[in-house]
Amino acid sequence: MIPFDYRRAENPAGAVATVAGAPGAVYLAGGTNLVDHLKLDVARPDLVVDVTGLPFDRVEPRADGGLRVGATVRNSDLAAHPVVRERYPVLSQALLAGASGQLRNMATTGGNLLQRTRCPYFQDVTTACNKRDPGSGCSAIEGYHRYHAILGASPDCVAVHPSDMAVALVALDATVRVLGRHGERDIPVDALHRLPGDRPDRDTILEHGDLITAVDLPAPLSVRSAYRKVRERSSFAFALVSVAAVADLRDGRVQDCRIALGGVAHKPWRAHAAEDVLRAGEPSEQLFTRAADAELAGAKPLPDNGFKVAMARGALVATLRGLTTEGTA
């Protein structure tokens, strides 16, 4: 670990000015990913600006019937929040499917979104990785890539985004509130993360110094929502594939739905093709399979992760089956 300066942010604008003006500065929130990266030399900041004291630790109702979640609200508090459990079950479930009790007590909403891939090569500075060291190559394409992308990857990077929470937020049409050098702006969570293209070093569209201050949840399309995560052990493991789904089911039809897949791409993957098939359809095994097939038609697995295509299909069908046959309506 290289030496760094530590400062506690006094106010949001000051924090942004400090980090934006210092190329080697980073924000520190829960630290669960950053501190690990400091130890691994994956992150080498010369200044760490602690934002945990900023006034972003509240969950508040919004005038439009939605919810504003402050960026420093801990994952455990958000998962246990009564309004989240009641109206956004997919979010509570996604949070609880991630990490461990200790980590959820530390990790924040903003930090969860900005956590980086767990690709083993990204985390190992002795190997080539275009995300960590642009231009050095991708070790995963011809190496160990069991956990890697089947959708939207590039010849430069096949990493996947590791967050469960972000997948639920995409299915909820959530928006992040960002404070930057030129003031505040809103970015849909779906547009926050990027596909790798030829710039896999950039996980998101954020500029250096941009600070996530909150996540806004619109009033839910339906409280009928669920998160399903498939992994290699039943707890404390990253997703092989995951599905977040919200469905408005009335008069025996899927009036509307929002679906996102996790563990399959460089960003939470909004499943527009599947949604199009489901919309106005009568729930059935056939319809669900058709929706999953439409979404996965463009999948391009690597030699050792082809299983993810069938797994994502199965997980999506099972999630839709569960959503339409049980739960609160």
Binding site: Y6, G31, T32, G101, Q102, L103, N105, M106
Partner: peptide, 23 residues
């Protein structure tokens, strides 16, 4: 020392956390 095993768990301001990932 990477937040994966839990042997460093302490209660920090009343909550269980991993002391190896806290500065």
């Amino acid at each position: 020392d990477h937040g994966q095993c839990g042997s460093c768990t302490v209660l920090l301001d009343g909550r269980r956390v991993l002391s190896c990932l806290a500065l």
